[in-house]
């Protein structure tokens, strides 16, 4: 687990260009939305845009470096090495997650710093609640990435397209830059209900409540409980799905089949 986390970190920080690219998108999108909110007199939403910039870094990491990782590993022949080793695949996935989280922190900090210096968003935080919510959001988000990574193994070259398809709709539905749940949400109830199946949606909503509206842990406990349950369920689902796909692959001979 530790080794896989280190590989992720070495890879992220080994290439200066990657650092710039991975930080560029969240910083720029966050800045653009903050300026927009500011210019239309919705200064109270600027904080949402900065928070969105922080969380979109993690969401991008989950999608591009977690969910599709085993697909790339399979293409390179690395997945076979994992399978023929005694290491549990779930440990490798958890290692990737930990490495991904730590590797994304600098990007998140830079977005926060720039947003703070330029816009001074109004914060009314219960920090204990923020930290707990943030931790549970990341746990459930990366558990979702682990589950997706096993499902992506079943796909062929569609993996990259699937990422493209998921990225923007999930960003919108989960309310990365504006509230997508509750009274302030622009979405009808049915869409809100569907969006609630995404851990990021619950996490973003709870983060806004604890960071900007001064809600304490007891006021957001349903969100925290859902995030906790999602993290555990998705973690087990990923392990089960990987084992299932391994068995199917061994039976059908698809483990080593690479798309050229």
């Amino acid at each position: 687990m530790k080794a896989r986390a280190l590989v992720r970190l070495w890879s992220i920080f080994g290439e200066p260009l990657w650092i710039v690219v991975s930080m560029g998108f969240p910083v720029l999108s966050s800045l653009a939305l903050s300026l927009l909110y500011y210019s239309i007199g919705a200064a109270s939403y600027v904080g949402f845009a900065v928070l969105g910039g922080v969380m979109v870094s993690f969401w991008g990491n989950v999608l591009w470096s977690m969910a599709s990782q085993f697909y790339w590993d399979k293409q390179e022949g690395l997945f076979e090495i994992y399978l023929t080793s005694p290491a549990p695949i779930s440990a490798i996935l958890i290692g990737m997650s930990v490495g991904g989280i730590i590797g994304t922190v600098p990007s998140a900090l830079i977005v926060t710093g720039i947003g703070w210096v330029l816009f001074h968003p109004a914060v009314n935080a219960v920090w204990g609640g923020v930290i707990l919510t943030f931790g549970l959001t990341l746990a459930s988000l990366y558990a979702m990435g682990m589950t997706l990574s096993s499902l992506y193994l079943a796909y062929g070259r569609e993996a990259e397209s699937l990422n493209e398809v998921l990225q923007e709709p999930v960003s919108m539905l989960s309310g990365l830059y504006f509230p997508s749940l509750g009274a302030r949400s622009p979405f009808p109830l049915a869409i809100q209900a569907a969006a609630s199946l995404i851990p990021l949606t619950i996490g973003m909503d709870a983060l806004r409540k604890t960071l900007f509206y001064g809600n304490d842990i007891w006021q957001v406990w349903p969100d925290l409980a859902i995030l906790g349950v999602m993290a555990v369920v998705l973690l087990f689902a990923s392990t089960y799905a990987l084992k299932y796909l391994e068995n199917v692959g061994r039976r059908d001979g698809t483990i080593g089949v690479r798309i050229r």
Binding site: G14, G77, L78, T84
Partner: peptide
């Protein structure tokens, strides 16, 4: 107790 290698594999992370 085993290990394996293939001439066709790349089998390494590029940036480390």
């Amino acid at each position: 107790v085993i290990n394996m290698a293939s001439g066709a594999e790349k089998a390494g992370y590029d940036f480390i």
